[in-house]
Amino acid sequence: MFYAQLLVNGLVQGLVIGLAALSITLVFGIARFPNAATGDFMTFGAYAALSAHKATGSIAMGGLAAIIATGVISLLAYLAVFRRLAERSVVALLVASIGIAFFIRAVLGVAFGHSQQVFQVPLSRPYVFGSVRITPLDLQLAAVALAALALVFAILYLTPIGRQMRAVADNRDLARVSGIRPDRVMIALWLLAGSVAGVAGMMLGIKTIVTPEFGWEMLLPAFTAAILGGIGSPVGAVVAGLLLGVVQEVSTPFVGFTYKIALAFIIMLAVLLVRPRGLFGRLEGAR
């Protein structure tokens, strides 16, 4: 039953990874580069949520702040940097995103200091199912993550802009000659990718401690999930995120806490070597 507990912990952790991976895979599928600033978008979201939570005492307001602020910072990064480099190589965009990552981290360090901060959430009695304990907070976080996922998937698969985003991901040149305006698609993409990362950052912040570096450290597991799920596949990213979260938690008794991050790295290498298009992948989407 010990493992059942780890499974539950892993699922909550997996939702965080899945959201981050979704942000990465959306950007990769549509803007066609690996966005190394995703981790720091998460950090930004966590601090935005932290500030709003301190000011209002409401987790919901924290969430709203994370969604809006991170969406906006992500859009600004696009307008100020990524749009100007759109016709350049993937490497140029990747390096630019690393630059933006450092920039955000530095600004957050100056603004909030480098000491660890935590969300002051009241302790509550966990629900006990057999030997598995689930805190109400975990349930709330899971609900928030699922709601965010539902919203993103509804936008992608049920709305005009989602249809156009998938069209651009599919064939950008064809989209342009068909009268689809890539600028609009890109604005929606960056708002969504930022908001999703912001929610992930807030969740991680509530579960752990917030420092200016903590999002960056999530980048490896998030990339692993994006690759494992098949780069460019939103469903794959989320499923792989959950899988990775569970595997990391369940393996902790065997490999020890310190090495659970290494596990993500090993899985990423294995996927790249054995099945580069991932679980749900379509490699041609990732030219």
């Binding site: 936008i155 802009i161 068909s178 609009r184």
Partner: peptide
């Protein structure tokens, strides 16, 4: 449907 022009739902704001 993706190719239909002048869709209000082409932006998140419109949506």
């Amino acid at each position: 449907m993706a190719a239909a022009p002048k869709q209000t739902g082409e932006s998140l704001l419109g949506l």
